[in-house]
Design a protein around this nucleic acid. Structure first.
Lengths: 157, 157
DNA sequence: TAAGATTGATTACTCAATCTTG
DNA sequence: CAAGATTGAGTAATCAATCTTA
């Protein structure tokens, strides 16, 4: 009867710490490996994949911002850089002239595909190979639940 | 016989995506809540906790940098800000005059303690409450393994 | 010459304010 | 006035180079 329910128990606190530490270390490590291999930065890769998976290789700016978990203005800047690099182009929407699409270029698509092996190798070497099948399944289930809950609670951006 | 072992299987790839998405969303959300409650930013809190848990409330700069997973120069700047805010002080080492300690001040300790309830509430609301006991245990085990492996592989900073 | 830490230059993310169209 | 997106100002993280002491 000492549980006030205002803070997490020890076990979940340990999970939180492991979650933060693993994320920081693994992402840093993969970014480093990808840079050494001449591949795209992770943030650039994420944007290009989101577009590659979208119908017509195009997405509205705000859809893209949600997909990569970046603020609106943060995405504007990132898209500026990707456009300057020739990896995508902006297209003004015809129906709603307020809106803009980001559209993947053939060069952008090719670059994304060329960067995948280095990224895949990084995921494998620094993350995937340390999980057994059951752990991978549990992580997916639990973290998708967490993500889904926060996503729907974050409407008030 | 199609597995080249150069890239992760579907299940582990799904775990990776869930891991990235959950981290980005939850951390953003907790930072926002803490700011609204007048609590410290997460990065500041992490530094103060590391010092609070250290013997004598003091740590060498490079030890602190490892504890919070930040580059050396990144930590120098962060410690500058914390020192300006009166939350810690720097002390030159007596034995090894190259070295410096960061030492928690009473005010820094009090501020860290005062920020914990808002942080705890955030962890509970946006992370812990979505995990059952078995999931929490699995996350801890698996992610500590991942973290330990990357940490030891990252000696070449 | 190497280790510990800081500095300078660069890059990038965030919020708040702004501009345009609905 | 609200929605979509961009811009300006401020803050923060990184790498490479530097300074000091071992």
């Amino acid at each position: 009867m000492t549980d006030t329910s205002r803070e997490p128990d020890e076990a979940r606190l340990a999970a939180w710490r492991a979650f933060l530490n693993a994320h920081a270390a693994v992402v840093r490590r993969i970014e480093r490996d990808m840079a050494a291999a001449g591949a795209l930065p992770l943030g650039w890769y994420d944007v290009l994949v989101a577009l590659a998976e979208a119908p017509g290789h195009r997405l509205r700016m705000h859809e893209l911002a949600d997909a990569v978990v970046l603020s609106r203005s943060g995405l504007t800047r990132l898209v500026d850089r990707l456009e300057a690099a020739g990896l995508l182009v902006r297209e003004r929407s015809a129906e709603d002239k307020r809106g803009a699409f980001a559209v993947l270029t053939p060069h952008g698509h090719a670059t994304q595909i060329a960067s995948w092996p280095a990224y895949a190798q990084g995921i494998l070497d620094h993350f995937a190979r340390y999980l057994d099948d059951a752990e991978a399944a549990t992580l997916t289930t639990a973290l998708e639940r967490v993500y889904g809950a926060v996503g729907s609670a974050s409407q008030g951006q």
